[in-house]
Design a protein around this nucleic acid. Structure first.
Lengths: 240, 240
DNA sequence: CCTTTAATGGTCGTACCGACTATAAACCTG
DNA sequence: CAGGTTTATAGTCGGTACGACCATTAAAGG
């Protein structure tokens, strides 16, 4: 099927769906909107919308991200295309093909309504709540992807503010992976990876709550990949 | 933009594009079709086609794979969704959103025409040949993805016939990565990973050309991921 | 028969990583 | 203010993995 012109084709609606993730109070949270109409009236759903005629899916995703979060500048946020969901019956109204993205936010301002009546809120990531459409699966895929990319990329800093402590960076890993990590070993590994983080020149004032010894501040480095990777502890299945 | 009904939307054509990769004579090859019409008349392009009204993108990709390769059974082949390309001007004729897939084939039968006039052929992967549309980028993304997944999954066996030698498996890594690997170390690593490969019970007759000591035959194991991963040798940039 | 080729088996040293202990600098409590 | 708590930081130690080798075996070829 090489020639477009000689085959009839069905036009599809193309949308983007966003799994916007952040860390609030040491727990992973997702930005969800409450549906105001059928189907799935009253259910929570991932934010998203149509791709406009002159937009790429990435452009549409960033526009939706700005609209839904109410943030003035979303240009620096990490936005990653997950995959495209195209099951014929995923939306009962019509044929909708949706390109899913994951977005990572450092802090979590409570979203304004964005001019739309339906409320948008940060809800904790449980993995259990039934979302509208196939959004449970999209959200689970987003979680899997982010967890995997933490191993071999510097993605974790996308969850952190511009200046952060190593304790905060470790919390990102622990929260997304759901495991505990040894603090000295984590510190050794991160500092031994050139370009992962770099110390803030001025000196290390603390940012955290206040208890304990003040921590040094770091910024995200210039590296994007981790060689060798920072592997998560193997699942306690069985050892051969 | 929560409600579909209250916004106008532009219908898009949705297609799939396939980067079908195989190993022929120790080199990576790609299945390409020659375009028989404008635009890009005479250029090589990735095989692909429209997603039909009752198909998912995965279904359409597998159908196209069967049509283009002429293989009777493509159900066991590894098919992986790469990402979706949706730049508004990627096809000059109309708005086309394309879901790209990578397919991995063990052996490489010369493709029949598939009933279509345009010829389909295996061409060596150079990364230099200018393909039609944005297919150069899709092909490069496919190569990157496959190379990366070799590190932490058992994907390499998808390039191998049902029974293979460790030398053939090593050739997959060396060809895709473009590097040489130490044979004893590769062997030790593969055999130390439970579930990666398992010996053929009957005994190890050779399959390869004939020179050298006959190699034992193995089958793909049940594992899907490699823990710890089989990292490719670091690029010779500089060491800190 | 000797060379060539490739598979297989093994050694050795280093780097890394997990587990663990120790010290330092802040706060809180009485 | 003394002492305990909390968190950050420094360091040790042993096992494992892995890269760089070397050696042996089993075939084909001249």
């Amino acid at each position: 099927m090489r020639g477009y012109d000689k085959y009839a084709f069905e036009p599809f609606a193309v949308t983007v769906d966003l799994a916007v993730l952040t860390l609030r109070a040491g727990a992973l949270h997702v930005l969800l909107v409450e549906r105001g109409q059928e189907p799935y009236l009253g259910h929570w759903a991932l934010p998203g919308g149509f791709v406009l005629p002159n937009e790429s899916a990435e452009t549409a995703a960033r526009r939706e991200l700005a609209e839904e979060t109410g943030l003035a500048d979303v240009s620096g946020l990490h936005l990653e295309q997950l995959r495209t969901y195209s099951e014929p019956d995923r939306d009962p109204r019509m044929r909708v093909v949706s390109v899913a993205f994951a977005a990572l936010l450092p802090d979590a301002p409570e979203p304004r309504g964005g001019g739309d009546a339906a409320q948008a809120r940060w809800l904790p990531y449980d993995g259990a709540q039934p979302l509208a459409f196939d959004h449970d699966r999209i959200l689970a895929d987003a979680h899997d992807r982010v967890g995997a990319k933490l191993e071999y990329t510097c993605l974790a800093t996308a969850f952190c503010p511009p200046e952060f402590t190593l304790g905060e960076l470790q919390q990102v890993y622990e929260t997304v992976w759901g495991t505990g990590l040894d603090r000295p070993n984590f510190r050794r590994k991160v500092l031994a990876t050139p370009g992962f983080v770099e110390p803030v020149p001025g000196g290390g004032a603390r940012l955290t709550g206040g208890r304990g010894k003040p921590a040094a501040l770091y910024r995200a480095g210039t590296a994007t990949t981790l060689h060798p990777p920072l592997l998560r502890p193997p699942r306690e299945g069985r050892s051969a």
